[in-house]
Simulated assay, not measured.
Amino acid sequence: MDLVTVSNVSLVEQGVTIIAPLSFAQRQGQRLALAGASGAGKSTLLQLVAGLAQPTTGEIRIGGARVRGPHEVLVPGHPGVAYLSQKSDLPHSLRVEQVLRYASRRPAAEAQALYELCRIAHLLGRRTDQLSGGEQQRVAMARLLLGAPRLLLLDEPFSNLDRAHKRTMQAIIEEVGTRLGITCLLVSHDATDVLPWADEILVLRRGELVQRGTPQALYYQPANEYVAALFGDYNLLRGPAAQRLAPAPLAPGAALLLRPEQVHIGPSGGEGLPGTVRAVRFMGSYYEVEIELADSVVRARTSTAAFAPGAAVAVAATQ
């Protein structure tokens, strides 16, 4: 069952198209993400879904009810929808317990369970101005969840967090869906943050929807180089090298896109294209090997530094 339905929605401001007409639906419980480079329109689209911005055309429905924008209502927003912005916007100098008590619509036991889920039970006696950025964001999340929303809109929830706080926030968002049954729509400027989480991803570019699919499909079958670059390193090959490495014949002039982990390196004389190792770089959990072919350069990933710079190798593609 679809919880969110976006139909032919666009946004034009002062003659400039911010969001081109687009349509999509999100099922109840589906983990949907919006990805794209800065300025792609991701946060603006999220604000349209939240009822915080007024679309120029089209309509948005949540649970069958039309979302009315700020031009139609006195207080922007939609019942049952919670919006977590990049800034926590917590009241200044109040104790965390006070902030949450004012927002709660849940019994005490349920509220305490939410504090545990959001990893803030130990912060209840602290003032909001004594919290770190990650702690403030978790408190802001708990405050929204206390309102028992059906849909949680997350606008760049990891953008200002260090690695440790990001991992904590990712775990919380995962549990919000699995334990509380709240549907989440998430925006991230770093598309790799949504690969392990999302059921489906919508990729935007300059306000246009350029591809929609599962994380696996967008990673391995991107619609174009823009989508490929969003989700990690890649090799783009043309000409004879592309034709020989492709698993099936390519159309004339077509390019072959390979992720570094799809490039296999073997001993010289083996199956594949002949090449020469130009560089080997230690990246922590893997080695990046740069290989010069006759008409191009490719990068591969290996678990060991089996080939030194200058070594002759054979390069093949795995699917």
Rank of each mutant, 00 (worst) to 15 (best):
L74C: 05
Q112T: 11
I62T: 11
G41F: 03
T44S: 05
Q98V: 02
V12A: 13
V73F: 03
T56W: 07
P91Q: 11
G63S: 01
A53G: 10
A108I: 07
V67E: 11
V49I: 15
H92I: 12
K87C: 01
Q28K: 13
L114R: 09
G51V: 04
Q26R: 08
R31Q: 13
H71A: 15
S23Q: 09
P55K: 13
G36V: 01
H78N: 04
P21A: 01
L84E: 00
V75M: 10
V81S: 02
P91V: 10
G39T: 02
I60A: 05
A40W: 00
H92R: 14
T56Y: 08
L46F: 00
H71C: 10
L34H: 06
G36A: 07
R61M: 02
R66K: 14
I19N: 05
S93F: 07
T57K: 01
R61I: 00
I62Y: 11
R106S: 09
G29D: 13
P79Q: 01
Q98H: 12
L46K: 01
G77H: 04
L52Q: 14
A82V: 07
A108L: 12
E72K: 02
G29Y: 09
Q14P: 01
D89S: 12
Q14N: 14
F24C: 04
G29K: 12
A50M: 02
T57L: 02
A37N: 09
L34V: 09
A37R: 14
L45F: 11
L22E: 07
E13R: 15
L45C: 06
G51N: 07
K42P: 01
